Amino acid sequence: MSRKISDIILIGPISTGKSTLGKLLAQKLGIPQCSMDDVRFNYYKEINYDEELAKQIREKEGFQGIYRHWKPFEAYAVERLLSEHKNCVIDFGAGHSVYEDDKLFKRVQQVLEPYINVVLILPSPDLEESIQILNERNGGIVTNRFDLNEHFVKHHSNYDLAKFIVYTKGKSPEETRDETLKIVKF
Rank of each mutant, 00 (worst) to 15 (best):
V118H: 02
Q110D: 15
V118S: 02
I121D: 02
Q132G: 05
L148E: 07
Y115Q: 01
Y159G: 01
T168P: 00
H155F: 03
H155W: 02
L161G: 03
P173I: 11
A162K: 08
Y167G: 01
H151F: 15
D126V: 06
A162H: 11
E128L: 09
D126H: 05
G140K: 03
D126N: 15
I141C: 10
K182D: 11
N117S: 05
Y167T: 09
F164Y: 15
F152A: 04
F152W: 06
H156W: 14
L120N: 12
K185M: 10
K163N: 14
K185P: 00
V111Q: 03
T176S: 14
E129K: 13
E113R: 10
G140H: 00
G140N: 05
K171N: 10
S124Y: 03
D126F: 01
I183Q: 07
K185T: 14
V166P: 12
Q132L: 14
D178N: 15
P123F: 11
E150A: 13
L112V: 12
L161H: 02
I116V: 15
R137N: 04
V111S: 07
E129P: 02
T176N: 09
V142S: 07
V119C: 06
Y159W: 07
I141Q: 12
N138T: 03
L112M: 12
D178K: 14
Y167N: 01
K185E: 12
V119I: 15
I141A: 02
K154Y: 06
L127C: 08
L120V: 06
N158S: 10
T168K: 08
I165A: 13
G139Q: 11
L181P: 07
V184K: 02
H156P: 05
Q110M: 13
V119S: 11
F164V: 00
L148Y: 07
S130H: 09
P114F: 05
R177I: 09
K169G: 05
N158I: 03
N158C: 08
Q109R: 12
P114T: 00
N144I: 01
E129Q: 11
D126Y: 05
E113C: 06
K169M: 08
N135E: 08
T180W: 13
L127I: 11
S130T: 05
K169N: 10
L112Q: 11
E175S: 08
T143Y: 12
N144D: 15
V184R: 03
N144C: 06
L148K: 03
H155Q: 09
F186T: 08
I133L: 02
H155G: 08
V166K: 09
Y167I: 03
N138D: 14
S130R: 05
Y159E: 06
S124L: 02
H151C: 10
V153W: 03
Q132T: 14
T180Q: 11
D178R: 14
Y167D: 04
F146T: 01
H156R: 14
K171R: 13
